[in-house]
Every structure is written in C-alpha cells, then in structure tokens.
C-alpha cells in the first residue's frame, strides 16, 4: 500500500471544524427544544383531542415517519424559498429538523401517555386538580419520564441526522467537509476525522441527556430507579 495518510492537513483546519461542531450543536439544541414542545403538544391532542384533530396529527406523524428527512428538508427549505420568503439558512434547517423530530417525539410521548394508569387520572380528579394541572403534573411529566430513554436515543439520532442539512448548504460539521475537501483533496482523512468527532459528539449528547434526566426527574436521582 503506497498511500500516505496525512491527517495533519485536515486537522490544520481545526477552526473550521470547531465552527462546524458549534453549528451542529446549536441546530441540535434548538430542534430538540422545539421538537419536544411540538411532540408533547401533538401527543396530548393525539390522545385526548377531538376526532378531526387526532386525524390531522396522525396524518402529520405518518407522513413524516414514512418519508426521508432529506426530501422533507428539500421540500420545506426550497419550498419556502420559492414562495419568495427569505429565511436565514440555519432557521430553515431548524424548521426542517423540528418538523421531522416533532413527529417522532409525538409517537414516543403518546406511548408514554397511554401507559399512564387510569387510576392516576381518577386520583387527580379526586384531589380537585384542574385539567391543566392534571395534564402537566400527572400525565405529561410521568409520561416523559417513562419514555425518556427512547426519547434520548431519538435525539442522538437527530444530532447524527442533522448532517443531512449540509446538502442544502448549511455549514455545520459535515458541511465543512466540502470546504476542506476542495482545499486539501484529503477525502478519506476528512471522513475519518469527521467520524471520530461525531462519535464523541454522540457520547456528549447522550451524557447531556442523562444529566438532564437526573435534573428533571428527582425520583431517578433520589431512588435510583425508573418508573
């Protein structure tokens, strides 16, 4: 084998890589926050709303879950542009990722809500909690806690999948590879370096979710057991 590996040439671009990592993390953060909000909202409607609202939500969930993220991103980002609306590309990418992850979150949270025992709801009614209070404290919070492991792996996948929006010109971590590629021609080394960074990022995001879980769900922290 005669090929000389040259990782130095790629690593010399560390400021670009760092910038890319930052953009990837920001994209992931905002899509996570909006995704969980949309997911929880849609899951509540999906389990307790009027029948036409349920139908609309399930149409949304099924359509997103059965089409590729890439096509959704093209559809939304190029589509919005074709309407003459000028959005910063990062906003467009966040919208596309949020719409996508929102559907998956809805499905996961719905499973959590459906696992809440009827007796809990009856107890909440007996205690005189209002509908909003019941939903916030008796339904959504325990539901989120129960599906938290599934949710966090879904969001690690979201971080990895955010590389796809590089195809519409977002300069996140993967998007930086194009620039470095055209200047160094070290294609293989770039992907090795990117791979290692993504593995570390996946670990980082997973750890972040574990810590967040400990902060959000005291039962887990104090008793060391899940629901």
């Amino acid at each position: 084998m005669t090929y000389q590996f040259d990782f130095g040439a790629v690593l010399a671009y560390w400021p670009l890589l760092l910038e890319g990592i930052w953009t990837t993390l920001r994209l992931t953060f905002f899509s996570t926050v909006f995704g969980i909000l949309i997911g929880a909202f849609c899951a509540v409607i999906r389990t307790g709303g009027s029948s036409w609202a349920r139908a609309v939500i399930s149409l949304y969930v099924e359509f997103i879950r059965n089409t590729p993220l890439l096509v959704q991103a093209y559809f939304l980002i190029f589509g919005i542009a074709s309407l003459g609306i000028r959005l910063p590309i990062l906003v467009g990418a966040t919208i596309a990722l949020t719409v996508n992850i929102g559907a998956y979150t809805t499905e996961i949270v719905r499973a959590g809500i459906e696992s809440i025992h009827r007796g809990q709801l009856e107890a909440a009614t007996c205690l005189g909690l209002s509908r909003t209070q019941t939903y916030l404290h008796v339904v959504i919070r325990p539901a989120l806690e129960r599906v938290y492991p599934a949710l966090s792996s879904q969001y690690v996948l979201l971080m990895l999948a955010s590389s796809i929006v590089s195809s519409v010109g977002v300069e996140e971590l993967f998007g930086m590879s194009n620039r470095i590629q055209s200047e160094t021609f070290r294609n293989f080394e770039i992907f090795v370096v990117l791979g290692i960074i993504y593995l570390l990022l996946a670990m980082l995001v997973r750890t972040g979710f574990t810590l967040l879980g400990l902060a959000m769900f005291p039962r887990r922290r104090k008793l060391g057991t899940s629901l």
Binding site: M1, F174, Y198
Partner: peptide
C-alpha cells in the same frame, strides 16, 4: 456501537473514498 454512532453520510464517505486508498 461505532456504526450506530456515525452519521450515514460519514459512512458513505468512508466507503466511497476508502477502497481506492487500499489499492
């Protein structure tokens, strides 16, 4: 663990540019 921690795009890049490096 490693395969699931890599974006598919990175796998694609490795598989596309890798073989030519190994001759």
């Amino acid at each position: 663990e490693i395969t699931q921690g890599l974006p598919l795009l990175v796998l694609m890049g490795l598989c596309f540019y890798g073989p030519s490096i190994f001759g």
